[in-house]
């Protein structure tokens, strides 16, 4: 019995440009890796890829790709996803992702970056785990060092925001720190 051959793409969504709604001036690294808005879910991601492929390759492309397109894993907090696509045409999906500039529905400017192409889902998962471990390690290194310029600039911005609308002052604290550790 021969299996159907797939490729698994590990995709990371990056947000280099702050959306027009937020007024805070985050440091660049935090801004780039900020979490995906909740309104954008796995279903929307599949639709996004299908539309992008159709845009770039027309009916032929979307016919070739859509049969086995699937989102295997999607985490909005780290903006990471694993996408399954047919092995012969994974370059189409990749190129279509390269051409994406905006998330539909939430309307946020985005840059999609393929981190890894893998033949098995296990290796793709390992890559995701390795990445998130790296992030945790980096965050811990900052904590150990004490006063970090980046962290302090985030705190300063949060402080500024709080002064602007002092009603929310008591509630905000937990949320903000959680975002950093991710």
């Amino acid at each position: 019995m021969v299996r159907v051959k797939f490729r698994y793409l590990v995709v990371n969504f990056l947000y280099p440009e702050p959306s027009s709604k937020s007024r805070t001036d985050l440091p660049d690294l935090v801004q780039i890796h900020s979490p995906t808005p909740d309104a954008f879910n796995a279903g929307a991601l599949v639709r996004l890829i299908r539309d992008a492929v159709e845009d770039l390759y027309g009916d032929y492309g979307s016919g070739m790709v859509s049969s086995s397109l699937k989102v295997n894993y999607y985490s909005p907090s780290t903006s990471t996803a694993i996408i399954r696509c047919p092995r012969d045409h994974y370059e189409m999906v990749w190129a279509a992702l390269t051409y994406v500039t905006r998330l539909p529905k939430v309307d946020v400017p985005v840059v999609c970056r393929v981190l890894r192409v893998s033949g098995t889902i296990r290796k793709a998962e390992e890559e995701v785990i390795r990445r998130s471990q790296n992030i945790v390690k980096r965050a811990k290194a900052w904590e150990g060092r004490g006063a970090d310029p980046m962290l302090s600039s985030v705190e300063k911005n949060v402080e500024k925001e709080r002064k602007r609308e002092d009603v929310l002052a008591a509630v905000d604290q937990g949320e903000e720190s959680e975002e950093m550790s991710e």
Partner: peptide
């Protein structure tokens, strides 16, 4: 012209191969 036009090296290599 803006940040959004920049792509990662691996993505560019894939574009080239396409």
């Amino acid at each position: 012209k803006s940040v959004l036009g920049i792509r990662a090296p691996s993505d560019v290599i894939n574009l080239a191969s396409v």
